[in-house]
Amino acid sequence: MSHQQPEPVQVIKQRRDAALSALVASLPYVQFLGVQFERRGDELTAIMPYREVLVGNPLLPALHGGAIAAFLEISAIIELSWMGLWDDVENGSVTINDLASGQARALPKTIDFSVDYLRSGLPRDAYARARVNRSGRRYASVHVEAWQDNKTRLFAQATGHFLMPERG
C-alpha cells in the first residue's frame, strides 16, 4: 500500500501567505489606508495600524467614520475573495503572479454597506474579522466586527451585501 507524502508545512504556509499578500498588495486603496491581514488557517484578521491621516476628529482625537467604514468593507471583500480563491490557490490554478497583477479574478462588488458606530475609534490600531453569513451563487451577506484594545468591546460593526463575480 502506498500513500502520498503530505506537503512540507513550510511549503503550504509559504504558498498561502504569498497568495494572501499578493491579493492585498494588488488593491491600491487597501495600501492607501495601510490595512494588513493576518492568517490562521483560513481565518483572517484585518489590521489597520493607527496613523494620523485616519483621524476624523482631531479634537478628541477619533478615527474618521469613513476610514472605519472602508476598513470594515475591505475586511468583508478580502474575506469573500479569499474564500473563493482558496481551492484555486491550493490546486495551483491561480498563481501568485495572477494575484499580484490584480487580474486573477473579478472582486465581489458591494451592493450596500451599513455601519454601526458603537464607540469612537481611538487613536490606536484597529482589528476586524468578517463572517460570511450567506454566500450564494450571486449574492453574499457578510457581517464584520471591529475592536481595538478589547475584543469584547466592539467599536464598530457592519453588515453588507455583495454581488459575487461570475465563475468562469
Partner: peptide, 15 residues
C-alpha cells in the same frame, strides 16, 4: 478599489 477597472473603492465614496 478594483485594479481591473480602475474604479475607486466604495470605502472612499463612503468617507
Amino acid at each position: 478599489g478594483d485594479p481591473k477597472t480602475g474604479v475607486i473603492h466604495g470605502g472612499a465614496v463612503f468617507a
